[in-house]
């Protein structure tokens, strides 16, 4: 991992949604859904974006896929031939050849497959619209993909309504793989699935990565799932990354108070480990009215005067991570391994 050029590097990404009021649609403010986010993903690496609803993780992923037009920032892709292309400003037609590099796996396995198309047509569509192979070649590739996601070939002519959630998610993965992309954006790919099926999909994603060296941008709210798939994790809070570190470091020695609270809140499936949780007071801040200074300060139990006025920036810390906290150096926070 992290060898050579990154597959994707995002710099200073911003997405503001204007708030307009009244009959004249006057601009009265912005919802800063994503505010100055930067990260990079290497070949064969999984970076997870985690956070609670409204933190901007989904908007970030949609900006990268250009399903949403970013307000500012650069989104650079390393193409197959070694060039680097900033896709943030490209038009629809300029974007089309680059689409092959980045595909997506959706959260809802029910709405992500067209109920009017057979499985073969759904998986084969990316090949068809990109003019790859003739009918027979495409058919062979679909069969290959079905094998990769462990679905019987006999299912090819079936329609999505005949499949369970887990099987549909496999079909969605096969479609995402059809063009041999370098990067797959997975937006909560297992959160709609039953527990016993989740594990199958998580293992499949890990297996595919090992076999074909895929890179994943994994968007999720469930920290347990994140621990099982990520090399590195970025924690977002109200549009910004507050901490970015390797999975081990983030879970064992978090450096940001929000990360600590988030980890502490996750219920552990072991009744003998019922611990005293850090229960955060209040609610996630409204991205249209971000608190002054550090957005987390009203809920932070370590907050000092400085946190209310000065916006912290993402700074490297020893151990290789990055954290955006004024008190990063003098705090010693607990991770999941040690009891609070």
């Amino acid at each position: 991992m992290n060898s050579g050029n990154p597959v994707l590097s995002v710099e200073g990404l911003k997405k503001y949604f204007p708030i307009r009021r009244g009959i004249l649609r006057r601009l009265v403010g912005n919802v800063k859904a994503v505010d100055d986010v930067s990260f990079a993903i290497g070949k064969g690496e999984t970076l997870s974006l985690v956070g609670e609803s409204g933190c901007g993780k989904t908007t970030t992923s949609r900006c990268i896929l250009r399903a949403v037009q970013p307000t500012a920032g650069a989104i650079r892709f390393g193409t197959e031939d070694g060039r680097t292309v900033d896709v943030s400003g490209l038009s629809r037609t300029e974007l089309r050849p680059l689409r092959r590099q980045m595909q997506m796996i959706f959260q809802d396995p029910y709405s992500s497959l067209n109920p009017r198309m057979t499985i073969a047509d759904i998986i084969g569509e990316p090949l068809l619209v990109n003019g790859i192979g003739d009918l027979n070649a495409r058919r062979r590739r679909v069969a290959e993909l079905l094998d990769v996601v462990q679905l019987p070939l006999a299912y090819m002519n079936r329609f999505p309504h005949a499949f369970s959630g887990g099987q549909r998610q496999r079909i969605g993965i096969a479609r995402a793989l059809a063009l041999n992309p370098a990067l797959i954006v997975a937006d909560e790919p297992v959160s709609a699935l039953d527990v016993s099926v989740q594990a199958q999909i998580i293992n499949l994603l890990l297996e595919l990565q090992d076999r074909i060296g895929l890179s994943y941008l994994f968007v999720a709210h469930d920290l347990s799932v994140v621990k099982h798939v990520s090399h590195r994790v970025a924690v977002m809070y109200v549009g910004r990354i507050v901490e970015l570190a390797s999975t081990d470091a983030l879970f064992n020695t978090p450096r940001h108070p929000y990360t600590e609270a988030l980890l502490s809140a996750v219920p552990v499936p072991d009744p003998r480990k019922r611990a005293k949780r850090i229960v955060l007071a209040g609610e996630v801040a409204d991205p249209s009215r971000v608190p002054s200074g550090c957005a987390f300060h009203p809920r932070c139990r370590y907050a000092v005067e400085r946190c209310k006025v000065e916006v912290p920036t993402l700074q490297p810390v020893e151990g290789g991570g990055m954290v955006s906290c004024h008190r990063a150096k003098d705090l010693s926070l607990s991770g999941v391994a040690a009891p609070v």
Binding site: A67, R99, R100, F106, D108, N114, E125, V129
Partner: peptide
């Protein structure tokens, strides 16, 4: 807004398709 329409767009399908 349907995901399968987004998916087709990401696959590079034309607007007409």
């Amino acid at each position: 807004e349907e995901d399968f329409v987004t998916a087709a767009e990401l696959a590079g399908a034309s607007r007409l398709r």
